[in-house]
Write a protein that binds this DNA or RNA. Sequence first.
RNA 1: GUGGGUAUAGCGUAGCUGGUUAACGCGUCAGUUUGUGGCACUGAAGACCAUCGGUUCGAAUCCGAUUAUCCACCCCA
Length: 460
Amino acid sequence: MKKNIIAPRTLSGFMELLPQEQAVFNKIKSVLEGVYSSFGFFPLDTPVLEYSEILLAKAGGETEKQLYRFSKGDTDLTMRFDLTVPLAKYVAKNAGNLSFPFKRYQIGKVYRGERTQRGRFREFYQSDIDIIGDGQLSIINDAEIPAIIYNIFTKLGINDFTVRINNRKVLNGFYDMLGFGEQSQDIMRIVDKIDKIGQENVIEELGKIGVETEKANRLIEFIRIDGSCAEVVSKLKQLGDNEIYLQGVSELEQVTSLISSFGVPEKFFKIDLSIARGLDYYTGTVYETTLTAHPEIGSVCSGGRYDNLAEYYTERKLPGVGMSIGLTRLFYILNEKNYINKNDFGSPCDAMIIPMANDENYSQTLAYAVKIGAYLRENGISTQIYYENKKFKGKISYADKLSIPNVVFIGEDEIKNGVITVKNLKTHEQQTLAQDKAVEFIVSNKKQSGSLVIMGEEDA
RNA sequence: GUGGGUAUAGCGUAGCUGGUUAACGCGUCAGUUUGUGGCACUGAAGACCAUCGGUUCGAAUCCGAUUAUCCACCCCA
């Protein structure tokens, strides 16, 4: 009689990882948390579900079409599609109990019912940080954000990224000077595609919405301004006298020079006047981070400055600056490109104890193994014990497959002499030692681990 | 939402213009004589060839629909 088996499927656009991949993912996550904490950000968590009226306060157009929205009883619910809107609600609701500037980080899943594509998911992790001021917020914060991005990426071992920086006031001011009014948003969107579709097509598309070729050319000339940050800034200064424009240029100048003060080398950031995406609520500095070798995947991290975070939920003016790492996308790319150091970081624990015994003295051996396990854990070594009564080979190859770096053999001799035998499966080094020495042995091997991400030359 | 491609074991693929027991690699499991793994060798399990219908003596192979999935657009992390 065959049971009716239901095919085990996962919804499209919902990432599900194998154990070792998940272990690495979580380690990446903890690197982010570590860096955020080191800059003084509080952790925050908010519900995945919110009242629709909260999340939809501002939404319109595209976002609205992509929502997971449903009713339960009389309640109209929506799944969060980013972490910024919930933050706005949270800050507005708790403003009285928060100290400003309020710095928070939040790593959580968000949901968008988009058509899935490579590197584009329906459920994905965003890793956000924001600094919210009460009434005002220093421009220095705008420079701290890229410094944090730099810290995170280099700590992960990613050495091939560029934080591209622009300022919305510069764009708006320049557009004003060219006399683009309402169209600015559409123009930005087209211009932003220049890397993808080329200059010719941009001019053509601009023409379609009524931009004269002469202006289109000036626009392209403008966004193509290149060079070091200082060079770009000095070129920009000569290009206009519009008040907003000049304010933007000045902000851009301050931010980029401050980033250097934070110790970020110039090769990791640049002014890019073409970036314009995700701009709906940004009002000043904007960032976009891409992996230099893989621009096709798009942005893995973006953010910027906004004047008023929570205008829909409070009268209070709360300016802020923040950014969001597309953690799922980032992980997906790294994984796909084989950049991830699974051998060193995919292991569930530091050591596995193998009790070696036949049936007669099995319980005695196991008792000793459990004791040793507890001892190792007390000394900071994550340890599991192989309890199943399998052949030796099966046990050790289990450790091998899980990339557990050390195995501990416990048998008659060890019990008799009160020692344990430790073997490092990577170096093949094996020693029979007293417990405390064994701990040292394992710890010293542990330190040799490299970085989480190895950006390779195998890239073709 | 618009346009195009694909659908064969857990995964990656082969199967040419329709012809009987659907092949291979990886993975999984077992074994190569019981305290030393990764390698090698041997073997096993695992697929009603996405679903439904049609053409045909005969369909994984041709046609249609459905569903899923991928790519591009859109938008974005």
